[in-house]
């Protein structure tokens, strides 16, 4: 990569109904993270202490949408990020969490919090502090417009590196053969 630019690109990331695996894969670019830092500045991400997403150039979203808070966060990202990126299988398709889509939500909660034998005084949590789950898990493009998808569960560090360096160089990101994977 060339000389550091004057104005760094602001990058926000978040995990909705994700497993943080896509973030780990992002960190899997290893020491290339140091190469990246002269060009980007982190906004809200699990890696910083910033609580809300401000105006950003790129927003990386891992995870599908499974509860009300996910919807609020996703809309905040869409409002503030020039480019919104679905990172990983969950954000792009709902992913494995969407395997609950053929189950009744009330049955799931009943099974986990009430019927489960190891619970002595079970009960479905009902504090308003807790976000209500949606009846289905959705890919993020069913809630907001998405500009790019980086598939994989998770995408490899190399795929994320290629994607980001393409964007930073002003190219339309292209994942060639070997960098596109769905598993």
């Amino acid at each position: 990569m060339s000389e550091p630019v004057e104005k760094k690109l602001r990058l926000a990331t978040t995990s909705l109904a994700g497993c943080f695996g896509c973030h780990m894969s992002f960190l899997d670019i290893d020491e290339r993270l140091l190469e990246l830092l002269p060009f980007i500045e982190f906004d809200r991400t699990p890696l910083t202490d910033i609580k809300h997403c401000g105006p950003c150039d790129i927003g990386l979203v891992e995870g599908g949408v499974c509860n009300a808070e996910n919807v609020h966060v996703l809309r905040e990202f869409r409002k503030n990020c020039k480019l919104l990126v679905a990172l990983g299988a969950c954000a792009a398709t709902g992913g494995l969490p969407a395997q609950r889509n053929h189950l009744d939500l009330a049955d799931c909660l009943q099974e986990v919090y009430v019927t489960e034998a190891s619970l002595s005084r079970g009960g479905i949590p009902n504090d308003p502090e807790l976000p209500l789950p949606l009846d289905k898990v959705h890919p993020i493009h069913e809630v907001v417009k998405v500009d790019y998808f980086v598939p994989g569960c998770p995408p490899s560090g190399d795929a994320i590196w290629k994607f980001l360096t393409d964007l930073l160089a002003g190219r339309s990101p292209k994942l060639g053969h070997g960098l596109i994977s769905y598993d």
Binding site: A86, A92, T93, A98, P139, H141, F149, P151, K174
Partner: peptide, 14 residues
């Protein structure tokens, strides 16, 4: 993979 697809592009039927 061969066609370079990154996503399904439609609402999933589940």
């Amino acid at each position: 993979y061969d066609l370079g697809l990154t996503h399904a592009g439609f609402r999933h039927f589940f």
